[in-house]
Every structure is written in C-alpha cells, then in structure tokens.
Simulated assay, not measured.
Amino acid sequence: MTQPENAAQADMARLVAEINANPNNWQAYADLVAVLVATENLIEAEDLALKSLGLFQANDEALQNLLYATGNVYYVAGDYQRANDFFGKITDLAILHDATVMQAQGWYAQNQFQKALVYALTAVEQQLEDTGAQVLLGNIWLGLQHESKAAEAFDAAIHVDPMNFEANFGRGVVATAKGDQDNQWLATAQMIDLQRYQAQAQRLDEIVQLLSGSRLDGESD
C-alpha cells in the first residue's frame, strides 16, 4: 500500500471513529464522503452521502454542506445531471459560488455550452478574482466559438494570476486561431508546465481547426 493510500485509510478510520463518538458530527460525514470520493469508492460515498442527508434534514448548515458533498459524488461519477440537481438546491452563501461553478462545469462536461454559460457568468459575477471560474468561462466561450469573449475571460484570469497555465494556454489558443504571430501566451504556458503543454497539444490543434473553420464559414466573431 502506498503512502497516500495509507494516509487515506488512516483518515477513514479517524472519521469513522469521530462519527461513532458523536453521531451528530455532520462535518465528519461530509469529510468521510470526500475521502471516499478521493479514493474512488464511489458506491460507498453515494450510500453515505444519501444517508447523511436523511440524518441531518433539520440542520440547515449541515444539509447545505452535505448537498454539496452529494453533488460532488455524482459529478466525479460522471452523472452530471444528478450532480446539478443537488448543487442547484444550495442557497448557503458560503458555498453558493462553488456550487455555481460546479453546475457550470457539469453542463460544460456535457457540451451544453449555452447552459454552462449562464452559470459561469453568474460565478464570475459572484467572485471576479476566481481564476478557475474565469478560465472555465473562457473555455465555454471557445465552445461557443466566440473568440473575443474567450480572450476577455482568459485575460481577466491572467490579470489576477499571470502564471496560470490554463489561462495562458486558453489565451494562446485564441491567438493561434486568429493567426497572431507574436503568441506570448503559449510561450508562457510552455514555460510554466512543458509536460502539461505537450499533453494538451492535440486539444490545441482541434480547437484551432474548429475556430478557423467557423471563421471561413462566416460564423465566428
């Protein structure tokens, strides 16, 4: 067993002990669900998450956090529609932004770009300096073949975090599609993480071909 696996097993044992000692400790339930998800024990995570929702119906703080934990189980399992059903029930301002981002990601994963856009725009309005939300918004705009809007989102992320790989890579995709000769963004992405850049080279080619093709058809901005 590897060191991370040993650590995960230790976390599980500790959290189970905490739950046994205090069955009203909703945070221990949420944390245990997260550990089960991280260790890919998704069936057990689902069972525990749904059980915990029933146990803490009367505790709004607990219920809100457990709704998020349950949504995350289904998101990781690839059941994005069910995940969004749980994320959509969250009203607690402390986690509402994260839930909104997850809904955007869920729709994006299904190539439902228009629906994803609604949630991504809301997430960015909630937290302008969330680079992850800005990058997601940029990728959604790319999916919708709106290059200038995508560039704005990636630029916003770079303004907050100039060394953000995804933001620089996305901005570089837009520049490449537009035929910009001085593509500083892809050069920066390569400098930040060459291995990751090489792994995404195929995605770069596919997106550029898509955007270039739509421009020839007169559909791109």
Score class of each variant (00 low, 15 high):
A104C: 06
E46Y: 01
Y119R: 08
V33L: 04
Y108N: 11
L128D: 15
G78K: 13
F87R: 13
Q127E: 13
I43F: 03
V124S: 01
N22Y: 07
A45P: 03
A83F: 02
N139P: 02
A69D: 15
A116H: 01
F154C: 04
T131V: 12
I43C: 00
A28M: 01
D98W: 00
L36I: 09
K149Y: 12
Q112R: 08
A30S: 15
A10P: 05
F87D: 08
V76P: 06
T91D: 12
T91W: 00
T100Y: 07
W141V: 01
G138E: 12
L137I: 11
A153M: 11
E40T: 07
K89P: 00
Y74D: 03
A30W: 09
Q57F: 04
K89G: 10
V35E: 13
A109L: 10
A21S: 13
E18R: 12
A99C: 14
Q81P: 01
A62S: 03
A109R: 05
L117C: 04
D79G: 00
G54E: 14
V118I: 14
D47M: 09
A21L: 06
D155S: 15
A30Y: 03
W26R: 14
V33N: 04
A21E: 13
L42G: 03
Y29H: 09
T91C: 00
V33K: 09
A116T: 03
V118H: 15
Q127N: 15
Q145G: 00
L63V: 05
D98Q: 08
V35Q: 09
A133M: 10
A123D: 14
K149G: 02
G88F: 03
A151D: 09
Q27F: 06
R82Y: 01
V73Y: 02
P23H: 05
L121I: 12
E46M: 11
G78N: 13
N25I: 07
A150T: 10
V35M: 01
E61R: 11
A104M: 04
V124W: 04
M12I: 15
T39I: 02
L144W: 03
F56N: 06
G88M: 08
Q126T: 11
G132L: 07
Q145V: 13
F87T: 09
N22M: 06
I90Y: 11
Q134W: 04
E61C: 03
N22K: 14
Q57S: 11
L142N: 03
Q110L: 04
L121N: 15
E44S: 07
A34S: 11
Q127D: 11
F154V: 05
Y74C: 07
R14C: 00
V73F: 02
K51T: 13
R82F: 00
V101C: 08
D31K: 05
L136E: 02
L136P: 03
L67D: 06
D98V: 07
E152F: 06
N111G: 00
Q145I: 15
E129L: 04
L144A: 01
Y74E: 02
D11G: 00
A30I: 09
Q64P: 06
V33Y: 06
A153E: 08
G106Q: 05
N139Q: 12
P23V: 02
E152V: 13
V73R: 01
N22W: 01
V33P: 05
A94F: 02
Y80C: 02
L42A: 09
L144I: 04
A49K: 13
L53K: 12
L63T: 06
N111Y: 12
E44Y: 01
F154G: 08
D11A: 15
R14S: 14
A13D: 15
G88P: 04
S52F: 11
I140T: 10
